[in-house]
């Protein structure tokens, strides 16, 4: 039972991270119908920005400012760097291709992804960097509930992931910008005719999605303590899968999909052999896609001539 609960906590942590990444994919897809392959690398840059702040303030063992402030600053730096990067990518790699054939922005996105990975490799080297969270926060602190222990860092990560998703939900459902985003996702041309500045909405979408990815990057750094230039690929693939399972373009779907993937991964790592773990996951995904191509929350689009 305690093993089960421990895996549950692991799954929730992972799931929160995947959900945050998936949201960026899903929002961009909802509005532009573009698979933003560079999203995983935006997340990688966020993780490195957090690491940069950590190093700038004296490293994990001996920080010059209180640890809480430091972690907040790391989150802010990661979100800021990723947000700016996302907007820049949109402006230079996707906006000129707004009316191009569907495959052109896809290739452009692949190009951006390649470029970012190798730029990180050139600037930062191939070495793995560690956030060294254990030296920063005593891993023994946290909730103790019978045999189950949840470290404070995991609690922070899960809570902030939930908080970010709540804020996003409110933003999309309650604000004028959110309404404009939903309208643009529904029909871009009609939205433009109704006086919505579509370009601004798209920039806002990229900004929000990238900020979430940046936060996810710092979270992964804090929990798993490992950042490197290629980390965006696998995480991107998983976040993307989460978006697909939830129904790509759907925001609640992305959240659910992320949690499902995180839980599935934690439990299959815990209970099933690891050799065929990926194979089982991909097999399930194929079956799922064939049975329900729109995902859990997706709405089928009518096809017109």
């Amino acid at each position: 039972m305690e093993f089960f609960l421990q895996q549950l906590v692991n799954g929730l942590t992972l799931g929160g991270v995947y959900a945050l990444i998936a949201l960026g994919y899903s929002m961009v897809y909802g509005i532009l119908k573009l698979l933003n392959f560079a999203h995983g690398d935006v997340y990688m840059v966020g993780a490195f920005a957090g690491y940069g702040v950590l190093v700038a303030f004296g490293g994990p063992a001996d920080p010059r400012i209180p640890v809480v402030t430091l972690i907040v600053l790391m989150f802010l730096a990661g979100m800021l760097a990723s947000g700016i990067l996302g907007v820049v990518i949109e402006r230079f790699a996707y906006r000129p291709l707004r009316n191009a054939p569907r495959i052109a922005p896809l290739i452009s996105a692949v190009g951006v992804s390649f470029f970012l990975q190798n730029a990180a490799l050139l600037v930062l080297g191939a070495r793995f960097r560690s956030y060294g969270t254990a030296r920063m926060v005593d891993p023994a602190t946290g909730l103790q509930w019978g045999p189950l222990r949840i470290s404070i860092i995991r609690i922070v990560v899960i809570l902030s992931a939930v908080a970010l998703m709540v804020v996003l939900h409110l933003l999309v459902q309650r604000t004028k910008l959110g309404k404009a985003m939903r309208a643009t996702a529904f029909d871009r041309e009609a939205a433009a005719m109704m006086g919505i500045d579509v370009d601004r909405v798209i920039v806002a979408t990229f900004l929000i999605g990238s900020v979430l990815a940046g936060a996810a990057g710092v979270m992964v750094g804090l929990v798993f303590s490992r950042v490197y230039h290629f980390m965006g690929f696998v995480a991107g693939l998983k976040g993307f899968t989460a978006a697909v399972i939830g129904g790509i373009g759907s925001i609640p779907g992305a959240m659910m999909g992320g949690l499902l993937i995180g839980l599935a991964e934690a439990f299959s790592a815990g209970y099933i052999s690891s050799t065929f773990q990926n194979l089982i996951v991909f097999g399930l995904l194929i079956v799922f896609l064939l049975a329900r191509p729109r995902g859990l929350f997706g709405v089928p689009e009518p096809v017109k001539v």
């Binding site: 230079f92 790699a93 000129p96 452009s108 951006v112 470029f115 990975q117 730029a119 490799l121």
Partner: peptide
């Protein structure tokens, strides 16, 4: 860049894809 030919190759490849798509999407 000249000293890191393999990274430079990939960098240029990525940049080329973006520039090309923007210049001639078809």
């Amino acid at each position: 860049l000249v000293e890191e030919p393999s990274i430079t190759r990939q960098l240029l490849f990525g940049a080329l894809l973006v520039v090309l798509m923007v210049a001639r999407p078809h």
